[in-house]
């Protein structure tokens, strides 16, 4: 499988190519799908569907260029400890929210192409904080996913983050970060799934064996139909979640559904696409691997299908009364 980094082949996304901040949410999802379809380099889905809306929701200034997102435990201290505070142990309060941050954030998407990162971590006050790190403030160790897309480690050595780039955030925003990441990944998968369908249909129509195109064989038709169906299922779940973004208070469950369905469908879509491509699809001679290796990575990167399924199942099995059908119909 290819391990070439696409950054060597394509220019990374630049600020000029990014849509304005007030773009309709459904359009942002469509752009992420298109990025998934093209295997576009750069953190486009992360910028549009995760980092920007989270920063805006927290009341932080949104930097202009491409943004990445990260979360995880870090060593975080108040930069200006309030020595007069009687709240908690020494260091548990600051005269302002400026922080000093050390530690490592692992497998951050496209960190090397991002101008800044939106980082969720535990603050020194004992609750979640969202902060903005600028690219100059981290050192990165290169890493890559199965498709060769950058997944870099960010090393932070006592970085001073001014208070205007820090916000204490409610638990709801941490949840929002999770479902937004899941939806972004689902949109990318939906785009790549479409690419799998197009490449497969083109291949079975042009490749001839036993004197006729592969697409003329009943056994091939049966599998090809199932491929289209599974991709259509992913598209429907992602579009439904995209349309739900218009009312953010009811956007979470549809985003879980899209994330669970897209990640779960990767196995069937990639299996059929490869099977119908034959040997060439298993090599770098065919562009199919550009879609399938991404899909195999993307399904894992925000927790994997099992974590989405458990989230949904827990919701359905908890609470009073029958939640199954009402949750599916949105009330």
């Amino acid at each position: 499988m290819s391990t070439d980094s696409p950054t060597t082949d394509f220019p990374a996304a630049d600020a000029a190519a990014l849509p304005p901040l007030d773009t309709a949410p459904a359009t942002l999802v469509a752009l992420a799908r298109d990025a998934g379809y093209r295997g576009a380099p750069g953190p486009l889905a992360e910028t549009l569907l995760v980092a920007r809306p989270l920063l805006a929701a927290a009341g932080l200034a949104v930097p202009d260029g491409p943004l990445t997102v990260a979360s995880g435990p870090l060593e975080v201290r108040f930069a200006h400890v309030d020595t007069g505070s009687r709240v908690g142990p020494r260091g548990a309060a600051g005269t302002d929210d400026a922080l000093r941050v050390s530690g490592t954030l692992r497998r951050v998407p496209w960190a090397r192409s991002a101008d800044a990162a939106a980082v969720l971590t535990e603050g020194p006050h004992g609750g979640p904080v969202l902060l903005v790190l600028e690219a100059a403030e981290w050192r990165q160790t290169p890493g890559a996913n199965l498709a060769g897309e950058p997944r870099d480690a960010l090393v932070l050595l006592d970085v001073a983050v001014p208070a205007e780039r820090v916000r204490r955030v409610p638990a709801g925003l941490v949840r929002e970060a999770a479902w937004r990441s899941g939806l972004a990944r689902a949109a990318l998968i939906a785009g790549a799934a479409r690419r799998c369908v197009e490449l497969t249909v083109a291949h079975t129509a042009s490749r001839r064996q036993f004197g006729r195109p592969l697409s003329g064989f009943q056994a091939v038709k049966q599998e090809e139909a199932k491929l289209v169906e599974e991709a259509a299922l992913v598209a429907a779940s992602v579009e439904a979640a995209a349309s739900a973004l218009a009312t953010p208070e009811s956007a979470e469950f549809p985003a879980w559904i899209a994330a669970a369905q897209a990640t779960a469908s990767v196995a069937e879509i990639t299996r059929i696409a490869h099977q119908l491509h034959g040997a060439i699809g298993f090599t770098e001679l065919s562009p199919l691997h550009l879609a399938t290796t991404r899909m195999w990575s993307w399904r894992d990167e925000d927790g994997g299908e099992r974590s989405w399924q458990q989230r949904i199942g827990r919701y359905v099995l908890d609470g009073d009364g029958d939640r199954l059908w009402p949750s599916v119909t949105g009330g």
């Binding site: 779940s237 559904i257 669970a260 369905q261 299908e305 099992r306 399924q309 989230r311 359905v316 599916v328």
Partner: peptide, 8 residues
């Protein structure tokens, strides 16, 4: 997880 898969 299984109930969640079916629900999705």
């Amino acid at each position: 997880a299984r109930v969640g898969r079916l629900t999705a």
